[in-house]
Amino acid sequence: MNVNLFQGEQVRLGMLNPEILAKAFSRWDRDSEYVRLLDGGAGRMFSAKIIQSWIEKDLEKDLGLDFFFGIHAQENDHLLGFISLFGVDWNHGNTWVGIGLGEREYWGKGYGTDAMKVILRYAFTELNLHRVTLGVFEYNPRAIRSYEKAGFVHEGRVRQELLKDGQRWDVLEMGILREEWEKRYASLN
């Protein structure tokens, strides 16, 4: 109990009011590169107003299937992105994870990897899950590298799943098991 579950080396995970999150999301979605790295679907723009109503609805539902956090830089507390466990299969102990860094100046500096490490510890030591799964696009090598660093193992590729700029791209799937996580992070806990 001497570990702050929400605290990493560079980031802390937190939760802000829906109107602040919604403004950030609406702004981040105007960056098409961010959107294409985050999601296979075509980028679309929604007002902060409607995004806020979605967040509020999600919070009300709270079925215990999604765990959403804002990612904050420790040095200035800025909200730089989000990370979320979603689609938790409680009966099998599996969950998906998704992460997006909307603030570009924080790209490539280890914030994402750090946030992923924090959420893995949360998934394995607070939710007591058995594994964590993610999908990442072939055209996002920076993310692939980050997930490898956090301990994810390649589990296969969904061939030519996406069509972007006239080219087909694979979706890579990666996973990490509790025992792999324990081995890797035993020294840190």
Binding site: G93, H130, R131, E155
Partner: peptide, 16 residues
């Protein structure tokens, strides 16, 4: 063809 093998993603009858 098999493309992805999500290891131990299912737990049934006492095993993964």
């Amino acid at each position: 063809v098999e493309e992805v093998r999500r290891r131990q993603a299912l737990q049934r009858d006492g095993r993964y």
